[in-house]
């Protein structure tokens, strides 16, 4: 699947995934801004797609005091610094099968920047294909991106939404490991426990680990047909369902949110970024094992 910059559909479900080849062909395209977003903050400096800028999830997207995202003013400043206008097609890619690329993509959607794509296969596929890297940090001609109020109602869910979701029997997708889901552990395998005091899952949630959506060899997303087998035949979801995804802090679940909303064209999918670090610590919230 590929996108064309001139296409009015860029940012829609049909055009939101671009190939490494497409990116290679648009490195010089002034209407495209390529953004690398990684878990490992050192990777970008060791080499990145030529012309790519870096967006760091902690530094650039998170509020530095409150557990929340940046506001419209700060998003405007970020986009302006990166030389982005509302018409710029922003292509995200990164390490970890595009975890943080999807997270950054999701945050951009909260601010209504719909002209956005994810590079299928991420950083690793770009490297595997022997495509060029550079350590040169590009300089953008700053723009004046309009200040937009962050819209948390469409793509984001809060604790109160989940409680309501439970009473209305909405669908919840827990994308963590089966061990986390079962409450056998409070963190990913080989990851430290970061302080959840209860293990388990939100009542009624189905467990579909995020990595099921990715080909482990190429790092690319599976085909829509293969994804439907996983999410519809095996997990029982339906395209018309009202779905909330969650994980530990919302990064893995933004990956699944991306899959459901854009690759499977589900209409009502939200990401609960409070996720288990909020739910597993909050007093009195129901937990299932």
């Amino acid at each position: 699947m590929s996108a064309t910059v001139s296409s009015p559909n860029v940012g829609s479900s049909a055009e939101v995934l671009v190939s490494t080849e497409w990116v290679a062909e648009h490195l010089e395209d002034p209407s495209v801004r390529i953004i690398e977003s990684n878990e490992d903050s050192l990777l970008y400096a060791t080499g990145h797609v030529p012309g790519a800028f870096e967006v760091d999830w902690t530094r650039d997207l998170n509020d530095q005091v409150v557990r929340d995202f940046i506001d419209g003013q700060k998003f405007s400043a970020l986009a302006s610094r990166l030389g982005i206008t509302p018409d710029t097609v922003v292509v995200f890619y990164g390490d970890k099968s595009n975890w943080w690329a999807c997270y950054a993509f999701w945050v951009f959607q909260l601010f209504g920047h719909t002209k956005a794509c994810v590079m299928d296969g991420g950083r690793l596929l770009w490297l595997k294909e022997g495509r060029p890297l550079t350590t040169v940090v590009p300089q953008a001609d700053t723009t004046s991106y309009p200040v937009r109020t962050r819209n948390d109602r469409v793509d984001r869910a809060f604790r109160e939404d989940i409680l309501l979701h439970l009473t209305e029997r909405g669908c919840l997708v827990d994308v963590r490991s089966p061990q986390e889901y079962a409450g056998e552990r409070l963190h990913m395998p080989d990851y430290p426990n970061e302080g959840a005091v209860r293990g388990g899952h939100i009542p009624g949630a189905v467990n579909v680990p995020w990595a099921n959506a990715v080909d482990p060899n190429s790092g690319k997303f599976l085909s829509p047909d293969a994804l439907r087998v996983i999410y519809e035949e095996e997990a029982g979801l339906k395209p018309e369902d009202d779905i909330v995804t969650y994980c530990r802090i919302g990064e893995r679940s933004s990956h699944t949110w991306f899959v459901l909303k854009y690759l499977l064209d589900y209409k009502h999918v939200r990401n609960y970024d409070g996720s288990w670090t909020e739910w597993g610590n909050a007093v009195g919230l129901p937990v299932e094992r």
């Binding site: 878990e39 490992d40 903050s41 760091d56 902690t58 963190h187 990913m188 080989d190 990851y191 430290p192």
Partner: peptide
């Protein structure tokens, strides 16, 4: 590495 280190990286390095 500072506070921006993710938990996965933190554990592996530690």
């Amino acid at each position: 590495f500072g506070s921006g280190l993710s938990m996965g990286k933190n554990l592996g390095l530690t």
